[in-house]
């Protein structure tokens, strides 16, 4: 690494303002959630915490995030494991490329196309059979669909980095498929499973467009609540208070996860270096 000092200063001079700019809008949301002219500065928060519509929306958001992330983790781990272990990598023809193409479709497809496709599909199926009425169930299906590829790719990346001889060793020790999955694969991919699950929750919380088009009248989640409130009466202190709580929660969770995992890694690092003296 050889960056001259003058270049370093220029880089820092451009980068710090960008960092500030990244957080300025978020800080302003928090700033405008305070109401100095009302009876209490925290008036918006009092309104927020006594608002039952917000509370049900929060419940739905949590059910959606946890439910879709656990289902997509189950599907995605199996998918990634199968592709890493059993796919014929030297196969020719379009059939051996098919799984890859299928996995990348949800990632590449613009959200608006994704959302509208599901809207039309659920609508048609509902009219024909009565199943899939628009609501939390259809949102859940859509959220699982866009999370599965990310979980699968996380697990796939972890397993592809493994020495294939490990699997043969397990086989030689008479571990059958299920046993080697439980005793060898699961422990090895555990970080990828946890990472994939958290990624699923993050993706679910981040999404608006796909949720918006698969939601029904009785399945307003927090982002949809905020969006329609802004469309109706603009940004109010109460919306800012809600935004502040959401931003704060994500930042605390992300920093918490970061410091816990990095401490664990550091501990592992020191243990490994201990042998070298």
């Amino acid at each position: 690494m050889s960056i001259p000092a003058s270049v370093r200063y220029t880089l820092a001079g451009i980068s710090w303002p960008v960092y500030v700019l990244l957080y300025t809008p978020l800080v302003l949301v928090a700033y405008y959630s305070l109401t100095p002219h009302a009876a209490s500065e925290w008036h918006a928060y009092q309104l927020l915490f006594s608002d039952s519509a917000v509370f049900t929306a929060l419940q739905r958001s949590l059910i959606l995030a946890l439910g879709s992330a656990s289902s997509s983790t189950a599907l995605g781990v199996l998918l990634g494991y199968g592709l890493a272990r059993f796919r014929n990598r030297h196969g020719r023809g379009w059939l051996s490329h098919l799984p890859g193409l299928i996995i990348y479709t949800p990632i590449i497809m613009p959200s608006i196309v994704f959302g509208i496709s599901e809207l039309i599909f659920f609508n048609l199926v509902h009219n024909a059979t009565g199943l899939f009425a628009a609501g939390l169930q259809t949102m859940m299906i859509a959220h699982i669909t866009f999370q599965v590829p990310y979980v699968a790719l996380t697990v796939f990346a972890r397993l592809s980095g493994l020495d294939p001889n490990l699997f043969d060793a397990a086989h030689d020790l008479y571990a059958d498929g299920v046993k080697s999955f439980i005793h060898l694969i699961l422990p090895v991919v555990q970080p990828a499973i946890i990472g994939g699950f958290l990624l699923g929750i993050t993706l679910s919380i981040d999404d608006f467009t796909i949720s918006f088009f698969t939601a029904g009248p009785g399945s307003v989640t927090l982002p949809i609540y905020i969006y329609s409130a802004i469309a109706r009466k603009g940004v109010t202190p109460e919306i800012n208070a809600l935004g502040t709580v959401m931003i704060g929660t994500i930042i605390i969770m992300a920093l918490g996860h970061f410091f816990i995992t990095s401490r664990r890694e550091r501990a592992g690092h020191f243990a490994a270096r201990g042998n070298l003296g």
Binding site: L22, F208, L222, I247, I250
Partner: peptide, 16 residues
């Protein structure tokens, strides 16, 4: 980190 917050929240934040 900002991209992990909900897209509606981090977008309307620019209105502020």
């Amino acid at each position: 980190l900002p991209s992990w917050t909900n897209q509606v929240v981090r977008t309307y934040a620019w209105l502020e």
